[in-house]
Deep mutational scan, measured.
Amino acid sequence: NQASVVANQLIPINTALTLVMMRSEVVTPVGIPAEDIPRLVGMQVNRAVPLGTTLMPDMVKGYA
């Protein structure tokens, strides 16, 4: 099963992502693939992302 990117903490709206904010986990539904974590660093979320939430492509500005 493919691992997805999951929020390791509450990520406030418009926050630029850092490695410490994300972890990989096998979840359903599948979100952004864990191998894209390096690409996500520095990108901003367009909404608040609660701890444990799977990051979906539409949550990250410029990802989709």
Rank of each mutant, 00 (worst) to 15 (best):
N1E: 15
N1V: 15
N1S: 15
Q2C: 14
Q2S: 13
Q2T: 15
Q2V: 11
Q2D: 15
A3Q: 05
A3T: 14
A3K: 04
A3Y: 09
S4Y: 13
S4C: 03
S4R: 02
S4T: 10
V5R: 01
V5F: 01
V6Y: 14
V6R: 04
V6G: 02
V6P: 00
V6M: 15
V6D: 00
V6C: 02
A7P: 02
A7C: 03
A7E: 00
A7Q: 01
N8T: 13
N8Y: 15
N8D: 14
Q9C: 05
Q9V: 09
Q9Y: 12
Q9P: 01
Q9S: 12
Q9G: 07
L10Q: 07
L10S: 04
L10E: 09
L10F: 09
L10N: 04
L10Y: 06
L10V: 05
I11H: 00
I11T: 02
I11Y: 01
I11R: 01
I11L: 10
P12E: 11
P12Y: 08
P12F: 13
P12K: 03
P12D: 14
P12S: 05
I13A: 06
I13N: 08
I13Q: 10
I13P: 04
N14F: 08
N14D: 13
T15P: 01
T15G: 05
T15N: 05
T15C: 02
T15H: 09
T15S: 05
A16F: 13
A16N: 04
A16Y: 08
A16Q: 04
A16M: 12
L17S: 00
L17N: 00
T18D: 02
T18W: 06
T18K: 05
L19R: 15
L19M: 14
L19G: 02
L19S: 06
L19V: 06
L19Y: 14
V20H: 14
V20G: 10
V20S: 07
V20T: 12
V20M: 15
M21A: 03
M21N: 09
M21Q: 05
M21K: 04
M21W: 04
M21D: 03
M21V: 04
M21C: 02
M22Y: 02
M22D: 00
M22V: 11
M22L: 09
M22A: 01
R23P: 00
R23S: 08
R23G: 04
R23C: 03
R23Q: 03
R23F: 04
S24G: 11
S24F: 07
S24Q: 14
S24R: 07
S24W: 13
S24V: 10
E25P: 01
E25N: 09
E25L: 05
E25D: 14
E25H: 08
V26D: 14
V27T: 09
V27W: 04
V27K: 06
V27A: 08
V27I: 05
V27E: 07
T28P: 03
T28V: 11
T28C: 13
T28E: 15
T28R: 01
P29F: 15
P29M: 12
P29E: 14
P29H: 11
V30D: 14
V30G: 04
V30M: 09
V30E: 15
G31S: 03
G31Y: 03
G31V: 03
G31N: 01
G31F: 02
I32F: 03
I32A: 03
I32T: 03
I32K: 01
I32D: 00
I32V: 14
P33T: 08
P33H: 12
P33Q: 09
A34L: 13
A34H: 11
E35H: 10
E35F: 06
E35Y: 05
E35I: 14
E35V: 05
D36L: 10
D36V: 07
D36P: 01
D36N: 05
I37T: 12
I37L: 13
I37W: 02
I37E: 06
P38C: 14
P38L: 14
R39V: 07
R39W: 03
R39S: 04
R39L: 08
R39F: 10
R39T: 04
L40A: 02
L40H: 01
L40E: 00
L40R: 00
V41H: 09
G42S: 11
G42A: 11
G42I: 01
G42E: 03
G42F: 07
M43P: 00
M43C: 07
M43G: 06
M43H: 09
Q44A: 13
Q44S: 09
Q44G: 07
V45P: 04
V45C: 03
V45Q: 00
V45T: 14
V45S: 10
V45D: 00
V45A: 15
N46H: 12
N46C: 14
N46R: 10
N46M: 13
N46L: 13
N46G: 08
N46V: 12
N46S: 13
N46D: 09
R47Q: 15
R47H: 06
R47S: 10
R47K: 11
A48I: 12
A48L: 07
A48G: 10
A48V: 08
V49R: 04
V49D: 01
V49A: 06
V49I: 13
V49G: 01
P50T: 15
P50F: 13
P50R: 11
P50N: 13
L51V: 06
L51S: 15
L51A: 12
L51F: 13
L51I: 08
L51G: 09
G52W: 08
G52M: 14
G52I: 01
G52K: 08
G52R: 10
G52E: 12
T53D: 11
T53Q: 14
T53K: 12
T54A: 14
T54Y: 07
T54M: 08
T54R: 05
T54K: 06
T54N: 03
L55Q: 00
L55P: 00
L55Y: 01
L55A: 01
L55G: 00
L55E: 00
L55T: 01
M56K: 09
M56H: 14
M56F: 05
M56L: 13
M56P: 01
M56V: 10
M56R: 12
M56W: 13
P57Q: 12
D58I: 10
D58M: 09
D58A: 10
D58K: 04
M59P: 00
M59Y: 12
M59E: 05
M59S: 08
M59V: 04
V60L: 06
V60G: 00
V60K: 01
V60Y: 01
V60H: 01
V60S: 01
K61D: 04
K61L: 13
K61E: 05
K61F: 05
K61I: 07
K61G: 04
G62Q: 15
G62H: 10
G62W: 09
G62E: 13
G62L: 11
Y63V: 03
Y63K: 02
Y63G: 06
Y63N: 06
Y63A: 12
Y63Q: 03
A64N: 07
A64S: 14
A64I: 12
A64M: 14
